[in-house]
Amino acid sequence: MNCNKVEKLLLEDASVGGRAPIREHLADCSPCRTLYQQLSDIEDLSVSLGGGKGAPQGFSTQIFARTVARPPSRHRTAPAALALLFVAGAANLWTYLAGDEASPAAEASQAVQQEPELPRPAGLRWEDFQDRRFEPRPSPFVEVELHSPSQGSYVLQVPSRIQVQRGHSAQGADVTRVSY
């Protein structure tokens, strides 16, 4: 058996080096013996890479929980954040252009600040649900991913909650303050 044939067989599966015809070739051929040793080491160690910590406790329980209710992913929050930014920007622009206390901008800014009204079962007060364990923990920021064919992608962290306040300065000029 020549070296090319042995190399091809060893590359397919180094364990064939234990078979009689190949073992005889390896005994007389130093380069092939080195190749056999190196490939055997790589294959033996690679098997260990497939091992590891494995799945944690409760793995399958979490799968069933996730099949019932899935939390919104980051990608789904991005449009919401953009909508918030748009509303805040529109409120600003309108304030500068109109400067009217009763303008739609004021309503829009209030809408930004207002907590959503959540439905609750009849006969129970909202306070009954103020168990801290069930309070959502809103993240102060959401990630917005921007794609540009020429510049690549960027991830911006933008505030998930923006407040727009309108008022007047000491000199009487209209003032709009955006905070988060």
Binding site: L49, G50, G51, G52, K53, G54, A55, P56, F59, S60, Q62, I63, R66
Partner: peptide, 26 residues
């Protein structure tokens, strides 16, 4: 479950994310 978590972890080197993706696969 163990095979998939270890396989994904070998590719992405983030155990927690590997668990998450293995669950997504199932």
């Amino acid at each position: 479950q163990d095979k998939l978590v270890n396989y994904i972890n070998t590719l992405i080197h983030d155990y927690d994310l590997a668990v998450d993706l293995a669950q997504e696969a199932f």
